[in-house]
């Protein structure tokens, strides 16, 4: 069991490394992707400076906290899009029969399938996340927590995407639904939860778990709370397991490239 995990980790790391090498073949494009993504994220600082000129407190957040929120959202997004880029186009892989080559390998199909590609701009997101942390105030404690939450959040976002994309084992045209779902997560994650009320707030901690991926971590970063940390950790484990479950359940219905649409 332990060797299997070790071997799987080794091959996953190798796969990500090779994918990164492929992206770095063209250094100029690679660098501009990273740099422009940092600038792209930074442009939203303007938005919040303007909004905070109206009120000094929006939804219980100060400007600094909103920036941290943005930074963590970018980290989360970056971790998921960098390490598991293909999780966001998994339905294409499923529909076009591209799981075949992973199915004949003695490794975990889902992990292999989603780690064959990296997105260079996602590296810019991660970088931006750390820049924000330095602006917010660096300490080894926050650095560690921030990184941890970035990874956990990334796993949550990836798991949700895997679940949504896996729907294409059962239904058609689920790629648009998955894309919308993923955007929804990002959109909510970049606004303070204090502006939402009642049912919506409940939704954000359940069906659209932005609350757990982003809002709770910000609370823990502002004021350490072990229970909240454990909630985030526990939720991550559950949703990741759920993603595997849904994917493998669907895999039994996988039809390789035999799924054709016949026209009358």
């Amino acid at each position: 069991m332990l060797t299997a995990v070790k071997n799987q980790t080794r091959i996953t790391a190798l796969s990500i490394k090779y994918a990164l090498m492929r992206e770095m073949l063209n250094k100029a494009t690679f660098t501009s992707n990273v740099v422009f993504m940092v600038l792209n994220n930074a442009s939203f600082i303007i938005q919040w400076v303007v909004l905070f000129s109206i009120r000094d407190n929006i939804g219980g957040y100060t400007l600094k906290q909103v920036l941290l929120l943005w930074g963590l959202a970018a980290m989360t997004y970056g971790v998921s899009r960098f390490f598991f880029a293909k999780a966001f186009s998994l339905s294409n892989i499923i529909n076009n029969g591209k799981l075949d080559s992973f199915l004949v390998q003695p490794k975990n199909v889902l992990i292999s399938a989603i780690t064959t590609d990296v997105s260079p701009s996602a590296l810019g997101d991660i970088l931006y996340g750390y820049i924000i942390l330095f602006i917010y105030g660096f300490s080894f404690g926050t650095f560690f927590l921030y990184t941890l939450f970035g990874i956990l959040g990334g796993l949550i976002v990836t798991a949700i995407s895997v679940i949504l994309n896996s729907l294409s084992f059962w239904f058609q045209k689920t790629d648009v639904i998955a894309e919308t779902g993923n955007n929804l997560m990002t959109n909510f994650a970049t606004y303070p939860d204090g502006i939402f009320k009642g049912a919506v707030k409940l939704l954000l901690y359940t069906l659209v778990p932005v609350g757990i991926a982003t809002y709770l971590p910000i609370q823990v970063l502002t004021e350490f709370n072990l229970v909240k940390l454990l909630i985030v950790l526990g939720f991550t484990i559950i949703i990741v397991l759920l993603a595997f479950l849904v994917f493998y359940k669907g895999l039994k219905r996988y039809s390789s490239s035999n799924l054709m649409i016949a026209r009358i």
Binding site: G59, T180, N187
Partner: peptide, 24 residues
């Protein structure tokens, strides 16, 4: 179909901004 699903994304964005302005 894609357009209608895409509109959900639009709606969410709108909803967030609506909440933001209602708060402001």
């Amino acid at each position: 179909f894609n357009i209608f699903v895409g509109f959900i994304g639009y709606l969410i964005m709108l909803f967030i901004l609506f909440n933001l302005y209602r708060y402001l």
